[in-house]
Amino acid sequence: MPGTESNEPDESWEYSLSLPNDLRAVTVSRRTLRLILTVHGLIRLVDVAELLAAELVSNAVCHAKGPAALRVCWSAGVLRIGAWDADPQPPGPPHSFEQALDLEGGRGLALVRACSDLWGWQPLTRDGSRGKYVWCELAGVA
């Protein structure tokens, strides 16, 4: 019906949220992601997606100087969550989950690798700033 919103999860969509270099951006990102997934009928993905977004955004604001951004996309039954930061250096290799348990820091990418179906990174320029985009995917099918 024209003019009505659809909550069908098979429709493609994308959201982007610009973030300051501030640790409070992690909370803002998690709450925004929860709202996005809820309104699109993907509540079953919220808990894992929030964890993944928090790790990606935390890395972006803790390890890079300058702004960051969260990008959330849904297409063909796959949720992609990514964080851009202004540091063009690649992320360090993730530790295994078992190794990460013994570390005080450095668990973020190990959690991303363990909890997502696929993850990666790529160099990416945003608003004229060189940087990188670290992303992960979750299959939306239960």
Rank of each mutant, 00 (worst) to 15 (best):
R126Y: 14
K65T: 09
L45C: 13
L17S: 06
L111V: 15
A60C: 12
A64V: 04
V78L: 07
Q99L: 03
M1S: 11
W84D: 13
V26E: 07
P88F: 07
H63C: 02
D87V: 03
A60H: 12
E137A: 11
L45D: 10
P91M: 01
P88V: 05
Q99A: 13
A69P: 08
H95Q: 07
V46Q: 13
W121G: 09
V57Q: 14
V141G: 09
R30M: 00
S16Q: 01
E14F: 10
L35Q: 13
W119D: 04
A53I: 01
W74F: 10
D22K: 08
A54Y: 08
A86H: 03
P93R: 02
E11H: 08
V72W: 00
I36A: 07
T27H: 13
E55K: 04
D22V: 05
E8T: 11
E5N: 11
R71Q: 02
A64N: 04
A114D: 00
L17G: 09
L33R: 08
N7G: 03
R71T: 02
A54S: 15
P88C: 06
C115D: 01
D87A: 06
S6R: 12
R34M: 01
L42M: 15
F97D: 08
A54F: 07
G66A: 00
S96Y: 08
R44T: 06
V39C: 01
W13T: 10
L56Q: 12
W84T: 12
V72L: 00
A68T: 10
V141T: 12
N21S: 13
A64I: 04
A25K: 03
E55W: 05
L118H: 13
V39L: 03
E14D: 08
Y133S: 12
I36H: 07
G106H: 06
G120E: 06
P88K: 06
S16G: 01
L111T: 15
E14G: 05
R24I: 05
S18C: 03
Q89G: 04
D10T: 09
A114V: 00
S116R: 00
E8Y: 10
C62Q: 14
V26S: 04
D10A: 05
L103H: 09
S18R: 08
L52A: 00
G41S: 11
P123N: 07
G131E: 15
A60Q: 11
R44G: 08
L51N: 09
D87R: 05
R80Q: 11
P93T: 02
G92W: 11
R31L: 13
L37G: 01
A49M: 12
G105V: 12
A139L: 07
V28D: 07
P2Y: 15
S129R: 15
P2G: 15
S58V: 03
E50K: 13
S75Y: 09
G140V: 11
L138N: 05
L124G: 00
